[in-house]
Write a protein that binds this DNA or RNA. Structure first.
Lengths: 175, 175
DNA sequence: CGTTCGGTTCATTTTTTATTGAACATAATA
DNA sequence: TATTATGTTCAATAAAAAATGAACCGAACG
């Protein structure tokens, strides 16, 4: 509750925020939040990435919990997610025990690892499943059998298509 | 509750299903359900599309509520969603008052309308917003200003990229 | 060592999203 | 025109997902 970025105009009697977000930050973060919704990703993750995206220097967990008003748990989990995705890179800062992060601001990298993490597993699993299925069609009445077989073949062609297109898509996306 | 397609092995003492799903149907529907999760779409919609995808003949609402154990409301809303998406086509069946549907089984069509409905709006909105923002950077301290300006330019290039790539992607996807 | 700091985990709570079902509309039928 | 069949809408409910925060772990510091 009390998301830092929202449509609401004012946060009434809210908690003291040491370094409140600047208008630019709010706008850009909200932009990332929009995209995250379209992609079915949690808002906190988008907020973290957005703040980092605009920051000229690496940030540590405290920065996220303070400025975005997130719990330690959310920040930790969100950063883990972004690390696993390769959307964020850990940075060593001399004389500071804390882990620091910077955004990996390469569309290609973001898209590719997102697709790899989010879709390839499903596609792979679907492929083996459909192979199995295509084999076990004898048990259907002949009338249906042919139609169903065609549909399954079609579905398989879709996943094949996906695999074929992915690399081209990434190439098209430049650096 | 009581989803027709699930990992569970048995539905114990469940309600009488007149025309229970065949194993092939369960598998294929579950496949669509998997994809729908990755895309952040409700399971009921995937179930409807999956059942229709395999059906050799057009189906009416009753078929969905009966065979998938959905409420009338869900079936109605799910079909509306699929209609709006162009994933489903209405079919007139002589001597039957009910509306019948058949699946539009063209990957290209599905992907294109999904992206159009789900992403283009966000992209468009983001573009105008970022234009506005780029203009109002004077209020930032000069040190930050340059970096932020670069980031915003980058973000804009991303959306431009998206627009450029979309048609190519669709072309690559064949019919 | 013992203490503090930075961070992770995970059971609980909160928030969001999807589903239900009853009330309502509308069109075909008799 | 009354009746029934078909479908939609939407407030209430259920289910799923995300956020919280306290307990915990381990490494650095003194």
């Amino acid at each position: 509750m009390n998301p830092v970025v929202s449509q609401d105009v004012a946060v009434e009697s809210g908690p003291m925020v040491t370094r409140p977000l600047k208008p630019v930050e709010i706008e850009v973060i909200d932009q990332f939040v929009q995209y995250s919704r379209a992609l079915g990703q949690p808002r906190s993750v988008a907020e973290i990435y957005g703040l980092l995206f605009l920051s000229p220097k690496p940030l540590a967990m405290d920065d996220f919990t303070e400025r975005l008003q997130l719990s330690k748990g959310s920040a930790s989990q969100g950063l883990k997610f972004l690390r696993d995705l390769g959307a964020v890179r850990m940075i060593y800062v001399a004389g500071d025990r804390r882990a620091h992060y910077e955004a990996v601001a390469q569309l290609r990298k973001l898209v590719s690892s997102f697709l790899e993490k989010q879709f390839l597993p499903h596609i792979a699993e679907g492929e083996t499943r459909l192979e199995r299925l295509a084999a076990s069609l004898e048990s259907l009445p002949p009338a249906e059998r042919e139609h169903v077989a065609r549909r399954i073949a079609l579905l398989r062609s879709w996943t094949a298509n996906g695999r074929r297109i992915l690399p081209v898509l990434l190439k098209l996306m430049g650096s």
